[in-house]
């Protein structure tokens, strides 16, 4: 049976304004949602299940508040929802070590995740997890077809490239040219009743530690012009002042 795991992460709503207090981003007033690319990963996981059969488990690492996005994943059709309990900040080495253990414990043929999380934007988890599991990985896929292996399309040099990916593998998902499904009433009801499996896995100490967070430096006011004729002057300044042409 094909066992599919999809990694999901809770992040601030991407339309939210980010505030900083005492050197830390303050998320107390911000709505938390599933990271946008993870929605494409969930959709791809469900399509994989529909193509070949099997079961999909949505997995997250975090505190109890992170269970909301697991319920969201359940509402659109995943079979199982699992949270690895963690309250602490982890560097990539610690997080990937925990996820590697979780994937080994749960067992999986394939792992999907978003190409990057909307908070860090790093995109390290998919390829890092694959390396630790000794699996193949392809990042930033925009479509996939499923059989004993996966045929995935990802950006390459000079255009896209279609790759044959042997299983087991980790695939990170970019926004694809398809719509992600929305929950229906039945799904939402089932998700409410669904229970979250909670595991705890010991993380190694982090060697990368947070020093501080700050707002980006304000950009000095630029020059502004009225009317299209000013485009001639701007073109000149781009060469003479900005030196970018």
């Amino acid at each position: 049976m094909t066992t599919i795991i999809v990694l999901v992460k809770q992040v601030p709503d991407t339309n939210a304004k980010i505030a900083v207090n005492n050197g830390r981003v303050d998320l107390s007033a911000v709505k938390m949602v599933m990271s946008p690319y993870d929605e494409f990963a969930v959709e791809t996981a469900l399509r994989h299940r529909e193509a070949v059969g099997g079961e999909v488990t949505a997995l997250t690492v975090g505190g109890p508040a992170a269970e909301k996005i697991l319920k969201d994943a359940k509402a659109i059709g995943v079979d199982h929802i699992v949270r690895i309990d963690s309250a602490e900040e982890m560097d990539s080495n610690a997080l990937q070590t925990v996820l590697t253990k979780a994937v080994q414990d749960l067992g999986a043929t394939v792992v999907y995740c978003g190409k990057s999380a909307a908070d860090t934007g790093a995109g390290s988890t998919g390829p890092g997890l694959a390396e630790r599991l000794g699996w193949a990985s392809v990042s930033n896929i925009i479509s996939a077809t499923f059989s004993d292996s996966i045929s995935a399309v990802a950006p390459g040099s000079g255009g896209n490239v279609k790759l044959s990916v042997p299983l087991p593998a980790v695939l990170s998902c970019d926004k694809g040219d398809f719509k992600v499904r929305k929950p229906n009433v039945k799904g939402i009801m089932q998700a409410k009743k669904a229970s979250v499996e909670v595991h705890s896995i010991e993380a190694p100490a982090s060697s990368v530690t947070l020093v501080d967070q700050s707002l980006p430096p304000a950009k000095p006011a630029g020059k502004s012009y009225q009317g299209g004729a000013a485009a001639a002057e701007v073109a000149q300044l781009l060469r003479d002042e900005a030196n970018v042409l």
């Binding site: 934007g121 700050s214 707002l215 980006p216």
Partner: peptide, 11 residues
């Protein structure tokens, strides 16, 4: 981080 809405320094 946060798509450029904040900067983060790590040691």
């Amino acid at each position: 981080v946060y798509s450029g809405k904040a900067m983060q320094s790590v040691s």
